[in-house]
Design a protein around this nucleic acid. Sequence first.
DNA 1: TGCCAGGCCCTCTTTAGGGCCTT
Length: 206
Amino acid sequence: MVSDTVIVLDFETTGHSPTLGDRPIEVGAVRIEQGMIVDRFQALMNPGFTISWFIESLTGISNELVAAAPECEAVMHRFADWIGDVPLVAHNANFDRKFLDAELARIGRERTNPMACTVLASRRLFPEAPDHRLSTLVSYLNIATSGTFHRALADAEMTGSLWILLIDLLRDRYGLTDISFSLMHKISTMSRYKVHKFLQQYGATH
DNA sequence: TGCCAGGCCCTCTTTAGGGCCTT
């Protein structure tokens, strides 16, 4: 099986909206080559203000932890260098894209990487799942887990496993042998009613 | 002080509303 190299990333943040001042407190990511995780990135970062009790409880990331961490700007420079121009993947990519773009803008850099979403892909390829939250899909698809959720690297690793399963499903169900990032991206953004027929036709001609 | 987003996607739709998904 040949598939493109991708980087699967996840941010833990102080809230939902960078436009209202929320910032990342941790980034985790895995690099996937040939269907395997071959490298990892993880860093806590200091957002410059106090994290709410809710976020401390949700993530287990305390104010003490981020106080000892480097500022977001320093981490994001390292992260931007690490991801390069490799295509990106995230679970609910719209969320992580907002924070990535906002933090890159703060350091005078810009994302050029295309980005795909495992929520959108899963809704089309696993429509029978109870729902499409990461924790539900991990359980439903028997994805290996350390038992930790809402930590960036653990969530990125599970999302990476989900990405690999999505590619496996395209291979097994439709006989596709060369599954590119752009094919998965196309599937994720087309009408869910057209996906099955499209893949049948695609599999017959590739 | 209290509250805060937003893109996707379905449907009892398109002159709209509300659930899903992320922290």
